[in-house]
């Protein structure tokens, strides 16, 4: 299967500062994949490596099956919206469309114009005078109208108010439905993205903590509540992701493939946000326990 993004032992150093260490992950095509992790997990670095803005210090990265060389053909397959949604402040909206048109042979002018109408942007408006939501929408338009196969968005909604956020995601999902795009978007929050993503990668300190289709991840995790067990008390074959205990009661998050039949435990499904947070906490704990996890051999 062709992968949207595939990395093997990928590392990036800025001088001596490690921005990404030994990152190995796979994201298949045909998904809207969320790359979730706390700030500083290396998400932005990873995405910049994917679009060829950065070159890896070590390891391999393949985007749509090819190394993200800076070749024009490979660039044409990728749409990218950077975190700060940089635009040419002095240029008008119309100028930006002309910019997209002249730097992209596969530019879909009709699509771009239609989207600008839909968003309700004034073509004569300078980009510097646009609201945050409008900037994001214009940046998205530029990225989509070049007709990429893979759209990469770095924290696309983090700085948008709820209304702009919703509008942005509406436009994004419409484009995904229309063009069959694969999307990778990063976020430090998952709640915004819950309804738009169907694939999840949790990245904490460069390590992939969990990856997979969201539906099957939610199906394979259960929250168990029951009396505080002894060390023998857990049913076999379950990986405990997180356990919290009070005097009498334990709450466990387990990863399981089969149903849990032990009547001592109350079994609940878990929401995506709780799942993500549990994995992030677990990664935080293991990093605290092994000091080597945060420093990597040069």
């Amino acid at each position: 299967m062709r992968c949207a993004l595939e990395t093997q032992g990928l590392a990036k150093l800025y001088g001596h500062r490690l921005a990404l260490a030994d990152c190995t992950l796979t994201i298949p095509t045909g998904h809207v994949a969320a790359l979730v992790g706390p700030n500083g997990a290396g998400k932005t670095t990873l995405l910049h490596l994917a679009v060829g803005l950065l070159a890896p210090t070590r390891g391999a990265i393949r985007v749509l099956g090819e190394s993200p060389a800076r070749g024009a053909r490979q660039l044409a397959q990728l749409g990218f919206v950077a975190q700060e949604t940089p635009l040419y402040e002095d240029m008008s909206v119309a100028d930006h469309l002309r910019f997209g048109g002249s730097l992209n042979p596969s530019w879909d002018r009709e699509l771009a114009e239609r989207r600008v109408d839909q968003i309700g942007l004034d073509r004569a408006q300078r980009a510097g005078a646009l609201s945050g939501g409008q900037r994001a929408q214009l940046a998205l338009t530029l990225a989509i109208a070049k007709r990429p196969q893979l759209l990469i968005l770095d924290e696309p909604v983090a700085r948008l108010d709820p209304l702009a956020r919703r509008e942005f995601l509406q436009q994004l999902m419409e484009a995904v439905a229309e063009q069959g795009l694969s999307v990778i978007l990063s976020s430090h929050l998952v709640s915004d993205l819950e309804r738009v993503c169907d694939y999840l990668v949790i990245l904490v300190s460069s390590r992939v903590q969990l990856a997979g289709e969201i539906d099957s991840l939610l199906d394979s995790h259960r929250q168990l509540t029951g009396p505080r067990p002894g060390p023998w008390g857990l049913p076999e074959g379950q990986e405990v992701i997180e356990a919290t205990h009070t005097d009498r009661q334990s709450t466990l998050l387990v990863r399981t493939d089969g149903p849990i039949l032990d009547p001592n435990w109350g079994v609940d499904r878990i929401g995506l946000e709780d799942l993500v947070l549990a994995y992030m906490r677990r990664a935080g704990r293991s990093a605290a326990h092994s000091p080597m996890a945060s420093t990597v051999d040069p």
Partner: peptide, 18 residues
């Protein structure tokens, strides 16, 4: 300075041609 190179370098032209 304004980070617009990020926009320019992710269009469909190599940065040399740009």
């Amino acid at each position: 300075e304004r980070q617009t190179f990020v926009l320019a370098w992710t269009q469909s032209v190599t940065r040399s041609r740009w």
